[in-house]
Design a protein around this nucleic acid. Structure first.
Lengths: 210, 210
DNA sequence: GCCCCTCCTGTCCCATGGTACAATATGAAA
DNA sequence: TTTCATATTGTACCATGGGACAGGAGGGGC
């Protein structure tokens, strides 16, 4: 498999030992001595993988790194691995989306189970992400005007209403509408609404006029 | 406020003390000595509230009760409150959707914060639930045939295709379609697709024919 | 047997959406 | 200046959706 395990821990000997164990188990391993190091070295395309993260590390802490990665939109699942597990930290980490929270020392079997769960989840997350990204890319290709028309279409407005709201003619809206369907690569209104729903762009279309 | 706090703990004196503290803080409190007791007494309409749950209780354990309530579709958020917090149990509980995981003894302030978070979340959950339930109720009013037509409509099929797939005429589909729009209380196809999307009933409409 | 619901079907007619043939105007970029 | 993207508008024509007016067939409950 091509999955990477990113280990972040300030204890060099622990890193090395863990790296050996995981390489024997068939994973590709990259190690980092600090959160900074991982942030600097992690490429934009994360690839398949997961992060093994210590809580107490010099500089940016484990949970802080987790928050930063979430902000950056990372999909890499995090497995915390620490010697000092207090309940509050554990709760926070899991709530923030960590895949697991394990305590040192950890049996290889248990660790590998957690890693595999994390990798499986990452596959799903990446799939969703990729799909949504491609939809967003399509949406971004719309001109401002087309985007306005798009929004009104998926709110259930008919061409006549849209023309009125945008201060133009029905014929013009037809032209934009055609462009929208073309650029979004859909053949039916249903697909278009589905996309809008998935992207969360949609004002439920109750009222007419702002 | 009318929010109920349901306390489940086998320690009678702890229950009583906690009940006093929370009643002073303005909550309505109901106490239970076991998971069974709560399951028996909790009405179908849970009302606004949350559950304070001990992990180790005779009979069904805290996490087991949590699982059972999830199965039953309860929306009541759970705050675990226990003397014996091991990491694995904590992780499991939070992953299973617990609002928080606190350890005894607990400061009133901290406990009340957790309860209020739980209550706030419950409001949101109940709102979502209510909305989806009413949509499901509308959907359930469709006759089998209308439901078939509904599914094909939101997949983007046009009347002609639907008629062909269901082995009937376009005119008939128009009649069903009218019924569907009527019963689902929508004026536009966009709204109908939006509902289907929210209810998760929707086969993305790629292929024609099964 | 009768009534009601579901499912099915039909004919007009009109509103709406979609497309094929156009064309014009504006502003920014090359 | 030329070129391009964007936004705009027009006239047809046809496909589709949907309402108004009907009615028939079959099954289950009263």
């Amino acid at each position: 498999m091509h999955a990477y395990v990113h280990i972040v821990d300030d204890d060099a000997s622990f890193r090395a030992a863990l790296e050996r164990r995981l390489k024997l188990a068939g994973y590709r391993v990259v190690t980092y001595a600090s959160a900074r190091e991982l942030l600097d070295q992690l490429p934009d395309d994360e690839g398949a993988g997961c992060i093994l993260l210590d809580v107490r590390i010099p500089g940016m802490s484990g949970p802080e790194l987790q928050g930063r990665l979430n902000e950056l939109g990372s999909t890499l699942p995090i497995v915390f691995l620490t010697g000092h597990a207090d309940t509050a930290t554990t709760v926070q980490a899991i709530k923030a989306g960590a895949e697991d929270f394990l305590t040192k020392p950890i049996a290889s079997e248990q660790l590998i189970e957690a890693i595999n769960r994390a990798l499986a989840r990452h596959e799903l997350a990446r799939g969703r992400r990729t799909r949504l990204d491609s939809l967003r890319a399509l949406l971004a290709k719309l001109t401002p005007r087309e985007r306005q028309v798009f929004d009104l279409i998926v709110c259930g407005r008919i061409n006549k209403q849209i023309a009125h709201e945008l201060g133009t003619t029905e014929r013009t809206i037809k032209a934009h509408r055609h462009q929208v369907m073309e650029k979004m690569q859909v053949q039916s209104l249903a697909e278009l609404v589905s996309i809008a729903e998935q992207l969360g762009t949609r004002a439920s279309g109750g009222e007419v006029k702002a």
